[in-house]
């Protein structure tokens, strides 16, 4: 057996992540507004908010898939921080090759030596319950299994930070449960979790801390226990209570946004 490639403890830390005055514009609209925050190592952060609030944009800005229009996103290792992160998307993106080859390709891109890859692949397939599918084409798996494979692929990279963008949005309860267990296991193995969801139950199950985003602004950030007990922000409160007309309270907030109909 070869020794593990690297453990999060043995490599330099990329956290804390610092966002300073981050704004993001698209199509003449400001979709992310002046976000400044810091992510320390360790916790599981769940970002919640209504559709179109900017949750996905926020993750992509943190992960570096998008560049902020203004402000800065700073990792501790600068540009080499990218190789210690991974992201799982709402719809799993599977290459047109076998389950094993999908993970192998990701490891190859991160320059993991060939001799180490088989062990890593075998381990993550075992941990995600996909070993019996190892040689199947990835795209014949069910969506739930594909999402597990996306998690296995991310896990194989041993990221210090894992971003997940509504990872269970298109899954049934059983698959959702499986995915949540894997997320928990990845976190237990030492990875910082930053994820979005619109499923409040999931936020309660997984979150150590909650960030509530509405219309591109962070309106509340609090430890999960406290957040679900009593929300300080009234929009967050209305959202958590599931009041369908909750956004009426935000009318003033809405007026500041130019051409709201062109929002995505």
């Amino acid at each position: 057996m070869t020794a593990p490639r690297s453990t999060p403890e043995s490599t330099p830390q990329i956290l804390p992540l610092e966002l300073d005055g981050v704004c993001f514009d698209a199509g003449g609209n400001r979709l992310i507004k002046d976000i400044s925050l810091r992510f320390e190592p360790g916790l599981r952060t769940v970002v919640i908010g209504p559709n179109g609030a900017g949750k996905s944009l926020f993750l992509r800005l943190c992960h570096g898939l998008l560049r902020p229009t203004q402000g800065s996103v700073r990792w501790q290792l600068g540009s080499s921080a990218a190789r210690h992160q991974a992201m799982v998307f709402q719809r799993p993106v599977m290459l047109r090759r076998s389950v094993t080859a999908n993970i192998d390709y990701a490891l190859k891109l991160r320059k993991v030596p060939r001799r180490d890859r088989a062990d890593i692949i075998d381990r993550v397939l075992q941990q995600t319950g996909l070993r019996r599918h190892a040689d199947q084409p990835a795209r014949v798996l069910s969506i739930g299994e594909q999402q597990k494979l996306a998690l296995a692929r991310a896990w194989a990279l041993q990221p210090q930070v894992l971003f997940l963008d509504e990872p269970t949005a298109s899954l049934d309860p059983a698959a959702t449960h499986g995915v949540e267990e894997i997320i928990q296991a990845i976190h237990d193995a030492g990875t910082r979790i930053i994820m979005t969801t619109h499923d409040l139950g999931q936020a309660r199950r997984l979150a150590d801390e909650v960030i509530f985003i509405n219309r591109g602004r962070i309106l509340e950030r609090a430890p999960a226990e406290r957040f679900f007990e009593a929300q300080e922000n009234d929009l967050a409160r209305a959202f958590v209570r599931g009041e369908l007309l909750w956004w009426h309270k935000g009318k003033d907030n809405r007026k500041q946004i130019p051409k709201p109909k062109e929002d995505i």
């Binding site: 992509r60 898939l65 190789r83 992201m87 993106v93 290459l95 090759r97 990701a106 991160r110």
Partner: peptide
């Protein structure tokens, strides 16, 4: 593939062989 590839560390240039293969 773009977002997933970029996330894994492959820009358009590095992705060419994989895209041709897929």
């Amino acid at each position: 593939y773009e977002e997933q590839m970029r996330s894994l560390g492959a820009g358009p240039g590095r992705a060419v062989p994989a895209l041709l293969w897929d």
